[in-house]
C-alpha cells in the first residue's frame, strides 16, 4: 500500500500477525472494559506489562510506539497533573497508566494488521447481511476508493490552497475549502460513472 498517509502496518510473522482481525479487536475491547471495571494499581501494572510484552512480541519499533504516544502526550500529562492535584499520585498512575497501556496495545493491533486483511475481514463479517441488501463487494470497493481518495484529496487541497494564495485569499478558509469540496463531489460523480461503466453496480 503506497497511499500517502502510510498505514502503520509492519509486515511480520509474529503471533499477532497471524491472529484473526476479529480476535484482536475483541481482545482490545475486553481489555479496555477490564481497565475501567477493575480500576486499581494491580490492574494498571498488569495492563502495562501486557502492553510492553505485546509490543516486544509484535516487533513494534520503539520509534513507532513513541509516535503513537506523542499524539496524546499533552492530554496524558495534563490529565496526570490534574488527577495528582485532585486525588493524589497513586490515582493518577492508575488512570493514566491504564490509558497508556491500552494505547500501546492498540498500536500492536495497527502494526500487525494490514489494510487488506482488515477489508477482507469486514467483507466476511458483512456476508450474512447480504440478504438485507448489503453488498460486501461494494463495501470493499468503498474502502479501496477511500484509500485511493486520500492522496488525491490532499493533492486537490494543495492545488486549491495555491490558487487561493495566488489570489491573495490564503487567510480565507472559504476561498480554498469551497473549490476543494466542489471538486471532491465532481470527482466522486465522475468516479461513480466510471464504476458504473465498468459494470460494478451490476454485480
Amino acid at each position: 500500500m503506497t497511499a500517502s498517509p502510510l498505514g502503520d502496518y509492519q509486515p511480520g510473522t509474529s503471533v499477532f500477525h497471524q491472529l484473526p482481525v476479529g480476535a484482536k479487536l475483541l481482545g482490545l475491547l475486553v481489555l479496555s472494559i477490564v481497565a475501567v471495571s477493575f480500576r486499581g494499581v494491580p490492574t494498571t501494572i498488569g495492563l502495562l506489562v501486557l502492553a510492553v510484552a505485546g509490543c516486544v512480541v509484535a516487533g513494534v519499533r520503539l520509534r513507532r510506539a513513541a509516535r503513537a504516544l506523542r499524539g496524546v502526550l499533552v492530554a496524558m500529562t495534563l490529565l496526570a497533573a490534574y488527577q495528582t492535584w485532585q486525588r493524589g499520585g497513586e490515582h493518577a498512575f492508575v488512570v493514566v497508566g491504564a490509558l497508556v497501556a491500552l494505547l500501546l496495545l492498540a498500536t500492536v493491533f495497527t502494526t500487525t494488521t494490514s489494510v487488506e486483511r482488515m477489508v477482507d475481514a469486514i467483507t466476511r463479517w458483512l456476508g450474512p447481511f447480504r440478504r438485507f441488501g448489503v453488498n460486501p463487494e461494494l463495501v470493499a470497493l468503498a474502502f479501496s476508493l477511500m484509500i485511493r481518495g486520500i492522496p488525491l484529496t490532499l493533492a486537490i487541497a494543495g492545488e486549491t490552497r495555491d490558487a487561493a494564495r495566488a489570489r491573495g485569499l490564503e487567510r480565507n478558509p472559504r476561498a480554498y475549502l469551497t473549490p476543494l469540496v466542489i471538486r471532491v463531489v465532481a470527482h466522486a460523480r465522475a468516479t461513480g460513472d466510471a464504476l458504473h461503466a465498468r459494470g460494478l453496480g451490476d454485480d
Binding site: 479487536l25 503513537a68 490529565l79 492498540a106 495497527t110 482488515m118
Partner: peptide, 22 residues
C-alpha cells in the same frame, strides 16, 4: 473504520488507540 488501521484521526496517532482513550 478505516481509521482503525490507518493514521487518519486527528493528532495522527495510530487509529484504534483513540477508542481506548479519552
Amino acid at each position: 473504520v478505516a481509521g482503525l488501521v490507518l493514521p487518519i484521526y486527528s493528532g495522527g496517532a495510530s487509529g484504534i488507540s483513540h477508542y481506548s482513550g479519552v
